[in-house]
Nucleic acid binder design. Structure first.
Length: 466
DNA sequence: TACTTCGGCGCC
DNA sequence: AAAGGGCGCCGAAGTA
């Protein structure tokens, strides 16, 4: 850990103090609800397990493994699927073990795999989240740790339990665990404030790419939509919400983090079937691509994609992405890495030094990830101090990289929202002159008597009313 | 029994 | 030339 400016040292020191306060505050847990949810999920796991034991595959499993047969063992299941039932499986090149992750199982067309994934989904909720929380909760409160001395990027981490990976994407699973987090009183609510797209904004502060800045500053422009259009050979207007999601999470972000066209192509191509991608008028995107002359995924050999395939197309999209559209960003990545090779390290915009042996992707990603978190950290410190100074009935209870969770009395929700916005956007931009794009935040508030799962977006914090 | 390693997966 | 960044936790399986 090496803050190279006094200010960077102060940021960690003050952050440590405020995080300690937050840990002591803790977050209120509905213990009865937690117990009930554990019961319910255990019941579901038992029922699904009984069901899967009736299948032929499980009978085969028992025949081969006898008393050692373990429904939770993926290595055992891999043997059944790939050695006994003849499905094609990939192996880890170093260990020769079969890969049997969710994507692999989802692509095997067999009901047993679907059932297995369903059970795993609920077991993950049960073991990691519900029992984990029950183990750590004390007198109705959870006091997770929030560390500032762990991550190589100078981000934070959290443990006992990790408060930064509570399920939310899978709404059904998320509900079981998030409904256990509640405000510490009948007349209070939870308020969550997060920076929107802060890593993209902070990246722009490093590379200053004019095209990227236009995308950021112009609300009519949409990078993810445009890239989805290009990847699937569509007009931007044809891009549905689902297609935009694919552009964002299967091309744009992977490219930012250092993936490359061949990997993106596989994911975008598999999504055509697995997500049944269609246009507004019902046309299958796969058929649309076929009409444009692209009928095969294709592969790469001798560093060259097979001509005329989707793979080949994605190579063109990538070349265009870094070589033309975001060429300043692309050049920054090369220059930044060159400079690292020459100097053996680099400094972040927030005043930290990162020395040591790192790969290209690390060198490009660390400063962005770290500085983005430091925006949150600086705001967190200021908000926490102001709440004390103004004797407001609001406590900070959690932090998730780019968001702050507070437990607020109904009488001061609006004051809290306005104070926090002022600090997170206006004062932070005054404080760090290197922030050259406008920061934005989103607010979510739970109903009175609701849980973290019930949080709802606030349209306009200045017109907020409970 | 206690500990470590690995694969996998939850979040940003 | 290489090819997805950061964490923490779980269960399985191997080792001492």
């Amino acid at each position: 850990m090496k803050p190279v400016t006094f200010e960077a040292y102060q940021l960690l020191r003050d952050g440590l103090v405020e995080f300690s306060g937050m840990e002591a505050n803790g977050i209120c847990v509905d213990v009865e609800r937690l117990t009930a949810n554990i019961q319910e999920v255990e019941g579901r796991v038992k029922q699904l397990t009984a069901q899967i034991r009736q299948t032929d595959v499980w009978r085969l499993w028992l025949k081969i493994y006898g008393g050692k047969a373990n429904m939770g063992s993926r290595p055992q299941l891999a043997r059944i699927l790939f050695k006994e039932l003849g499905f094609k499986g990939e192996q880890n090149h170093d260990t020769n073990r079969y890969i049997l992750d969710e994507a692999t199982l989802a692509n095997i067309d067999h009901p047993f795999c679907k059932m297995f994934l369903e059970i795993e989904r609920w077991k993950k909720l049960h073991g990691t989240f519900l029992l984990g929380l029950q183990r750590e909760v004390c007198d109705g409160y959870l006091h997770s740790f929030f560390n500032l001395h762990i991550a190589r990027t100078y981000r934070s981490s959290s443990d006992s339990i990790n408060f930064q990976n509570i399920p939310i994407r899978d709404q059904e699973v998320g509900a079981y665990i998030r409904s256990c987090f509640i405000p510490r009183g009948k007349d209070r609510v939870l308020v969550e404030l997060d920076y929107s797209g802060v890593e993209v904004l902070v990246a722009a502060c490093y590379h200053k790419d004019p095209t990227m800045i236009q995308y950021i500053e112009n609300p009519g422009k949409d990078m993810h939509r445009d890239m989805a259009a290009q990847c699937y050979k569509l007009k931007p207007k044809q891009v549905t919400k689902q297609l935009r999601y694919c552009g964002k999470n299967m091309f744009v972000f992977p490219e930012f983090y250092g993936s490359y066209y061949a990997q993106c192509a596989v994911n975008l191509w598999n999504a055509l079937d697995s997500m049944s991608l269609t246009l507004e008028d019902g046309t299958r995107v796969k058929d649309h691509l076929a009409a444009k002359g692209v009928t095969k995924l294709g592969s790469v050999s001798d560093y060259k994609p097979e001509p005329g395939t989707f793979m080949d197309h994605l190579k063109d999209v990538e070349d265009d992405f870094w070589g033309r559209r975001f060429q300043v960003y692309g050049r920054w990545r090369e220059d930044w890495f060159e400079s690292y090779l020459k100097n053996g390290g680099f400094n972040t915009l927030t005043g930290f030094r990162i020395d040591g042996i790192y790969g290209r992707n690390d060198v490009i990603n660390y400063p962005i990830q770290g500085s983005a978190f430091h925006c949150l950290l600086w705001s967190f410190i200021q908000i926490s101090r102001q709440l004390r100074r103004r004797k407001m009935d609001a406590l900070l209870v959690g932090q998730i990289h780019d968001s702050i969770l507070a437990d607020v009395h109904v009488s001061c929700v609006q004051d809290y929202l306005i104070l926090a916005k002022e600090i997170m956007v206006d004062r932070l931009m005054e404080h760090w002159k290197w922030i050259i794009v406008n920061l934005k935040i989103e607010a979510e508030v739970t109903p009175v008597g609701g849980s973290w799962h019930d949080k709802k977006k606030v349209d306009d914090i200045y017109k907020f009313a409970l």
